[in-house]
Design a protein around this nucleic acid. Structure first.
Length: 871
RNA sequence: GGGCGUAUAGCUCAGUUGGUUAGAGCGUCACGUUGACAUCGUGAAGGUCACAGAUUCGAGUUCUGUUACGCCCACCA
């Protein structure tokens, strides 16, 4: 006996120790190695001050499975970790803490001091998520950990910004953008989420100047009326031809605005008249450009009304709305109010309704960049798994607008543009600029910072050393696969693709492996506000990281959401325990100290399990290569539990009890160490713990080689025969169960079979697993004097003498049921075989298989009928 | 308005390029302390693969249409 193992597996006593050992041995570290092929994954960097949630757990588990697999396959496998500075999210957190703890705002501290506080915060909490990733077993190369605002990434950001600016792909302009009045910053289109809300349509009269006439417009946002600079109608709308070019008097304001004609207006919608507010509506902005309309912005940054609002100045936009409606009503200008459901855009960080506003911002010109990004997905250079997400991606990329990249925040990469305080000259430069190249005046850097996603977009190459042409960059880029959720395809995946193409001239990754969202047991999204989130760390404490990982990898297909509940984790935990106990059994019976497989001394069941294992290795490799992780893991589960434990261990027990059976020990260990290796990417800890207790040569399973199919281990014939016996054993158990015969009632077993040698070599487990006392080979049934239950298999028939225990009626019913079943199947097979189309067109192999089935059914049917007659 | 997904056992889900008797986990029922494991074992019950057509020798799987639910994008003010 090598080592005494406890009866149940206790992950908590194992995991930290093993992880520490891996780290110390340096197994996670990858170097450029010309003798190996590279395999690279860059982590989707979690927010630096965030905490691990189930979505991370899924994402990291999938990546770790892939990276461990490839590492064992002999690749130089780099999983590059790091964190994201997460502009708005982090700034909001620190501001909140500042407010709660010190009653201060960031403005009280000033920019420099505030940023220092955020760095302090990052130092304090930045390690937390990294520790949590380690608890999961993530085999990241921690020596290469990066941060989106570290020196290298910042250098890359400046390089890219200046580069794009010089190419004319970054520009500054006064455009309409999404504004969050709570975060006080511009947002990109992708950062706005739309929800349908019940609102109103207010119908308002706009009087025609010097006339009794008026037009009626309908609006959902009456407060923007303050910034109207025209009313538009369709050019061919006959109702309004006479008003074209005339002036209207803007209610509540008194300003005069023209009636203009523009194709944008739909004649049949509403009244056919549209108020035009270029400063507060994207469509109106376009109309304004076409007609040279004045742009009057009526709101401040916090969405209160500014000086253009007259008496409404200082009011919040909704207060102003209320007040204006009341005033309009009083003046008899409010015609009616309609209920109206419409989509309202909200800030994806704070949920505040965004305000479209014209503002001077920085943009990335998307059209030229999108071209290449579209090409590489269309021509398959980059593939999405599952493929349907390439449609989502292409649809977005083909309709993408320019990307607003400036944010009015303090935490982030400050835009490398400098303005002369004297002459207004602007310089964009990688280096700090202090004096104006034109007039020598003092230069001041742009206040705005960049969208967080601007730096994340460079992640696959900035983390490898770009813009320097490092060995790492040459070797590990392009990366192999990107693993992420479908919810950030637009934010991140798309932007990495065009950035990689533009700056590296090569795709950032070859595959995008997309997973879904982890939901609660009722299918709801896990969220803080619902309080239905499950903490992965609590699950790890309770059930172990392996159980959690196994749960996340099982029953989940790429791109689909999954439900998470503890019963599933329990099942995974039970599986770990099953493996644990199987290993206890093997170790208890071990006398060998080295695995030496001698293919010449094998029993049928040995060949059978080796053959089954061989097929498993083939399947798992194929599944993993095709990103079918869920399928790979369910095959492993089935093999380990339902094949190795339920059958092979049971078959081999008599041999082990009988004495030192080296062949059995070798096969037990060979197959066990093999399936542990196959399972290791999914359940790294328990597989390592057991592996090291087995008589293996590798010092760690992490660096052992991944099993692959070997022709020498394919024993098709023995496999098929043992398979038949398994069926037979099941049938015997079934018969006994239906006769209500208790397991302890052991009887003889008579066997009628032509292949006597083979049956003899299996006699031990046949006897044991059919609850028999001994097995007797007979030449004919006639010789038996005892009353028997007959069970038939292919080429074999067994008789169980149960004497008076036999319930004749029950046996009759059982055999009749069996007969009906065989008849049904026989019918099915025959109808296939008599179908000329099938025989002519189906593959020959299939036709032969059907014929064999027919024979088998016929043979069995004859035996069953014979038994029925004898009753 | 456009696009996508899902619909398979009581529940949650797998099901590869069409081809044995459609599977698993959990739950249910019966039996069981057999020398690794009750976090277990043995056996069983449970399915018109949403509906209607089409293609095919053959459809859970492919195509068309319908229904229900979900998601994404666009935004007629």
């Amino acid at each position: 006996m090598r080592k005494e193992l406890s009866k149940t597996y206790d992950p908590s006593s194992v995991e930290d120790r093993i992880y520490k050992n891996w780290e110390e041995k340096g197994y996670f570290h990858a170097e450029p190695d010309s003798k190996k092929e590279p395999y690279t994954i860059v982590i989707p960097p979690p927010n630096v001050t965030g905490q691990l949630h189930m979505g991370h757990a899924l994402d990291e588990t999938l990546q770790d499975i892939l990276i461990r697999y490839k590492r064992m396959k002999g690749f130089s496998a780099l999983w590059l970790p790091g964190t994201d500075h997460a502009g708005i999210a982090t700034q909001i957190k620190v501001e909140e803490a500042l407010r709660v703890n010190e009653g201060l705002t960031r403005y009280d501290l000033g920019r420099d001091e505030f940023i220092k506080r955020v760095w302090d915060w990052k130092e304090k909490f930045g390690d937390r998520i990294i520790h949590q990733l380690k608890k999961l077993g993530s085999s990241c190369d921690w020596e290469r950990e990066r941060f989106t605002m570290d020196e290298g990434c910042s250098k890359a950001v400046k390089e890219v910004f200046v580069n794009l600016y010089e190419k004319g792909l970054i520009y500054k302009g006064n455009r309409i953008i999404n504004w969050c009045p709570h975060c006080i910053t511009a947002l990109s289109d992708a950062e706005v989420e739309y929800t349908e809300q019940q609102g109103h349509f207010w119908h308002i009269k706009y009087p025609v100047k010097d006339s009794d006439e008026f037009v009626i417009i309908a609006t959902t946002r009456p407060e923007t009326l303050l910034g109207d600079t025209a009313v538009a109608v369709h050019p061919e709308d006959e109702r309004y031809q006479h008003l074209l070019g005339k002036m209207l008097v803007l209610p509540l304001v008194g300003r005069e605005i023209p009636v203009i004609a523009d194709e944008y207006v739909e004649k049949d919608f509403g009244t056919g008249c549209v108020k035009i507010t270029p400063a507060h509506d994207p469509n109106d902005f376009e109309v304004g450009l076409r007609h040279n309309l004045e742009v009057i912005k009526v709101m401040n940054d916090d969405a209160t009304i500014n000086h253009y609002g007259g008496k409404y100045e200082g009011m919040d936009r909704y207060e102003a709305r209320k007040a204006m409606i009341a005033d309009l009503q009083e003046q008899g200008l409010l015609v009616k109010i309609e209920e109206h459901a419409h989509n309202v855009g909200q800030c994806y960080r704070c949920g505040t309704t965004v305000e479209p506003i014209t503002s001077s911002q920085w943009f990335v010109k998307m059209e030229p960049l999108a071209k290449e990004a579209i090409r590489v997905v269309k021509d398959g250079t980059i593939s999405f798994v599952p493929d349907r997400f390439s449609k989502t991606y292409l649809n977005w990329m083909e309709n993408v607008h320019d990307w607003c990249i400036s944010r009015q925040l303090w935490w982030g990469h400050r835009i490398p543009a400098y303005y002369c305080e004297a002459c207004g000259e602007m310089v964009v430069s990688k280096e700090d600029v202090h004096t104006c190249p034109k007039c020598g005046g003092k230069m001041k850097q742009e206040d705005d910072v960049l969208d967080t996603w601007f730096s994340s977009a460079l992640w696959p190459f900035s983390t490898l050393g770009w813009p320097d042409n490092t060995e790492e960059l040459k070797y590990f880029y392009p990366t192999s696969v990107l693993v992420t959720g479908y919810d950030i395809i637009f934010f991140w995946v798309a932007r990495m693709i065009f950035s990689g193409m533009e700056h590296m001239g090569q795709e950032p990754f070859k595959h995008v492996f997309i997973h879904g969202i982890v939901r609660d047991s009722q299918g709801r999204k896990m969220s803080k506000s619902l309080g239905n989130g499950i903490d992965p760390l609590e699950i790890i404490d309770q059930y172990g990281a392996d159980a959690l990982r196994f749960t996340l990898a099982t029953g989940n297909s790429p791109g689909n959401d999954m439900r998470f509940y503890t019963e599933r984790v329990e099942a995974s935990r039970n599986f770990a325990n099953k493996i644990w106990n199987a290993s206890r059994f093997v170790l208890m019976n071990l006398t060998i100290d080295k695995i030496e497989l001698d293919l010449n001394t094998l029993e049928p069941e040995d060949k059978w399990i080796l053959s089954k294992f061989n097929a498993l290795a083939k399947d798992v490799n194929e599944n993993l290569d095709k990103f079918e992780l869920g399928m790979a893991v369910s095959k492993l589960y089935d093999f380990i539990w339902n094949v190795y434990c339920d059958w092979y261990i049971e078959m081999v027990k008599p041999r082990l009890m009988a004495g030192e059976d080296k062949a059995a020990q070798n096969v037990l260990c060979y197959v066990m160490s093999g399936f542990l290796k196959l399972l290791h990417p999914f359940m790294p800890f328990i597989t390592e713990e057991i592996f090291q207790a087995l008589p293996v040569e590798d010092e760690s399973i992490m660096i052992a080689s991944f099993p692959e199919y070997q022709e020498a281990l394919n024993f098709a014939e023995a496999e098929a025969k043992v398979e038949t016996y398994i069926e037979l054993i099941t049938s015997v158990r079934n018969a006994r169960s239906e006769m209500n015969v208790p397991p302890k009632n052991k009887t003889k077993l008579y066997v009628l079979c032509e292949d006597k040698d083979f049956v003899s070599s299996c006699s031990e487990f046949l006897t044991k697993l059919t609850y028999s006392s001994e097995m007797i080979l007979v030449d004919s049934k006639d010789a038996l004097s005892e009353k028997c239950v007959n069970v038939v298999g292919q080429g074999i028939e067994v008789m169980i003498p149960l004497n008076e225990l036999i319930d004749k009626e029950k046996e009759f019913a059982r055999l009749t049921k069996e007969k009906e079943f065989l008849l049904k199947e026989l019918n099915l097979v025959r109808s296939k075989l008599s179908n000329k189309g099938f025989v002519d067109k189906a593959p020959e192999k299939l036709v032969q298989a059907e014929k064999a089935k027919e024979q088998s059914f016929l043979e069995k049917l004859a035996k069953v009928e014979e038994s029925l007659n004898e009753l």
